[in-house]
Every structure is written in structure tokens, then in C-alpha cells.
């Protein structure tokens, strides 16, 4: 701990996908959340801010604080997810399942400004099954300060073969 030679990096990756989700970016940029992440041993905060207009403050972390960096879009989101120790994501199903497949601890933050808020359904269901944590932007600090990532259950990979079998059966194809 305390070394900043790249090896002991402990990155929190925040992603909003292609959306605009200033409430989340603003939340993770708040001093109390950054302090809480630091207390929990994270060293870096990397924010993918998408189309949002709120720009977080960059910080090198030389003063012993959390190093903060951001970008708008990147073609290597997968790489960032892989190298992260904790992922904080918007509620899009693409981001959620990509993170779960990598086995990374995940906090999903639901965007309450979206008109059609069916997105919370998926996050809440997966939270109930303990595959991830689900929060609202204003509750994020509380979620982080009380979270216990050891209780999360790995998400079993999905399987499309039951659908394929039913389709085959309907069409009169054999299922071998």
C-alpha cells in the first residue's frame, strides 16, 4: 500500500456508456465519496463521462489523495473494466453484463432523469440476487460506506440453448 509505481494501483472505474449522466459523475467527484474510496484502499478513480457536461477535477494523487482522471469515450472500455478493482456503472444492460462476466464487483447507479425508467428493473433484480449493488446518485455515498463486496455472488453466464431448442421444436428440427 502507498506505493504509486503502478503495480499497486487499485482502480475504481466509473462508466456512463453513451448516455449523459451528470448526476453520477458529480456524485463520484464529491469529496466525501473520494475520501471513502481512499479509506477502502482504492488509489485511482477513472471516469468515463460520456455526453455529460459536468467535468470532474483531475488530480494526480501526489498528495496522498485519490488520483482522478476522466475521458468522454473510448474504444477500450473492456480494457478499463479488466484493470478495475471496482466498477460503478449506469444501468444499461450492456455495461452490467460485461462487468459481471469479468467477475468485477459492481455498483449500478440508476439514472432517475430517464423518462422510461425500466432500467432500474434489471439492476434491482440482480441486486436482489446479490450479483451487484444498486444505488441512486444521492445514495451512492451510503452504499459505498456500507458495502461488503465479499457477499456478492458471481453471476453465472447466460445460456441461449433453451431458446434454440424451443425454436427447433416449433419448426420441426431435431435438437441433436
Amino acid at each position: 500500500m502507498g506505493n504509486d509505481d503502478g503495480q499497486s494501483k487499485n482502480v475504481v472505474f466509473v462508466t456512463v456508456g453513451t448516455t449523459c449522466f451528470d448526476a453520477l459523475v458529480r456524485a463520484v467527484d464529491a469529496p466525501e465519496i473520494k475520501q471513502e474510496l481512499l479509506n477502502r484502499g482504492y488509489t485511482d478513480l477513472l471516469i468515463q463521462m460520456g455526453r455529460g457536461s459536468y467535468v470532474p477535477t483531475k488530480c494526480g494523487g501526489e498528495d496522498g489523495g485519490l488520483a482522478v482522471d476522466y475521458f468522454t469515450f473510448s474504444s477500450s472500455i473492456a480494457q478499463h473494466l479488466k484493470s478495475a478493482s471496482l466498477v460503478i456503472s449506469h444501468a444499461g444492460s450492456g455495461s452490467i453484463f460485461e462487468t459481471l462476466r469479468l467477475g468485477k464487483p459492481l455498483i449500478v447507479v440508476v439514472n432517475e432523469d430517464l423518462m422510461d425508467n425500466h432500467q432500474s428493473e434489471l439492476a434491482e433484480e440482480l441486486a436482489e440476487r446479490k450479483h451487484l449493488l444498486c444505488a441512486r446518485p444521492q445514495m451512492l455515498h451510503q452504499t459505498i460506506s456500507t458495502m461488503n463486496l465479499e457477499f456478492l455472488i458471481p453471476y453465472p453466464p447466460g445460456d441461449a440453448t433453451p431458446v434454440a431448442k424451443l425454436i427447433n421444436k416449433h419448426l420441426g428440427f431435431s435438437n441433436d
Binding site: 444492460s93 425500466h118 434489471l122
Partner: peptide, 9 residues
């Protein structure tokens, strides 16, 4: 054949 999205719970 229609498969409802996984996002619909």
C-alpha cells in the same frame, strides 16, 4: 419468435 430483452424483469 420474440425474445423479451433481459432488461425487462
Amino acid at each position: 419468435f420474440y425474445v423479451e430483452s433481459i432488461a425487462r424483469v
